[in-house]
């Protein structure tokens, strides 16, 4: 990261690098493929082709021209195109949800940790209340109220996930606040806002980044789970969760329909977790 540019400490950098690199490659590759699907997929992911139904991977289509690398689904749609396009929703929702929960959790966490008192009590009370309501219930409620679109899904997921970021940040802030450099900043004429945004947030940032990265994995799984339950973004748009769910009916005759999106989810989650773990090892030193 940015804060290690000196030759004296070069050996530090090696720590956690293989994992970080592996994670970055996996995530980067998947994100690239998903981005590519916006402008190009081998076939239209939503166009059924009844004559090519449930073709296994590496087979040629009925017309003798189409070639299905990952086979086709029960409506004859190209599985590869659908896995690619299905990632759009999953990845977008995951990043959006994590971004929202990080911003919400980090800002509130730092403020509560720093100011304490009334603000901390009020936010703390809401957090406690929210903790007593099952996460699934909250998301189902949000989805039924506002319909299920990408943004609503992201907001719903972030509502259930910001709590952990909030707790982490608040705890870290309580530690950092006690350190002399916040007092030193005050002595040098800094106000509360300056201390919160210029001193505390940069200091708790390392752990937020790590935690946020790991949270992406959880969110992808959660979104897949919701789609699997039929609560995700609606048909005909492909999402990984829905593809797994739709494909399970055809498990005996067309395993590839659900196995490939499942592989994509697993791979992305593993990649993100590697990335998070690598970052943690790297940022651990000061």
């Amino acid at each position: 990261m940015v804060w290690l540019d000196n030759k004296d400490v070069v050996w530090y950098k090696k720590k956690g690098v293989p994992k970080l690199l592996a994670g970055a490659v996996i995530v980067g590759l998947i994100v690239l493929i998903v981005l590519l699907s916006i402008v190009w997929t081998p076939y239209d992911p939503n166009l059924p082709n009844v004559s090519d139904r449930l073709l296994p991977p590496l087979s040629t289509g009925h017309n003798g021209q189409s070639y299905y690398l990952l086979g086709t689904d029960q409506l004859g749609r190209d599985n590869l195109s659908r896995v690619m396009a299905g990632g759009q929703v999953s990845v977008l929702i995951a990043f959006l949800a994590v971004l929202l929960s990080v911003v919400m959790g980090a800002v509130l966490g730092v403020m509560c940790g720093y100011f304490g008192k009334t603000l901390d009590n009020i936010v703390g009370m809401f957090v406690e209340i929210q903790h007593s309501i099952p996460m699934l219930l909250i998301i189902v409620m949000v989805l039924t109220l506002f319909g299920s679109s990408t943004v609503v899904l992201a907001v719903g997921l972030s509502l259930s996930e910001w709590l952990s970021i909030f707790r982490q940040t608040r705890a870290k802030t309580l530690v950092e606040r006690k350190k002399d450099y916040t007092l030193a900043a005050r002595v040098m004429g800094a106000g509360d806002g300056w201390i919160v945004f210029r001193h505390l947030i940069p200091n708790v940032m390392a752990s937020i980044i790590v935690y946020g990265t790991l949270l992406i994995g959880t969110t992808i799984l959660a979104e897949a789970g919701l789609s699997f339950l039929g609560l995700g973004v609606q048909r005909p748009y492909a999402t990984w969760g829905r593809m797994i769910s739709d494909g399970q009916t055809y498990m005996a005759t067309g395993w590839w329909v659900s196995v490939f999106p499942a592989l994509a989810v697993a791979l992305l989650v593993i990649g993100v977790n590697f990335l998070g773990d690598g970052l943690r090892a790297k940022l651990k030193m000061e």
Partner: peptide, 19 residues
């Protein structure tokens, strides 16, 4: 603070922001 009156602390290890 900082311009007319400044202050230095006992513990130089924590008086600087590590990041």
């Amino acid at each position: 603070r900082g311009k007319r009156i400044s202050m230095i602390f006992q513990e130089p290890m924590t008086a600087l922001n590590p990041v």
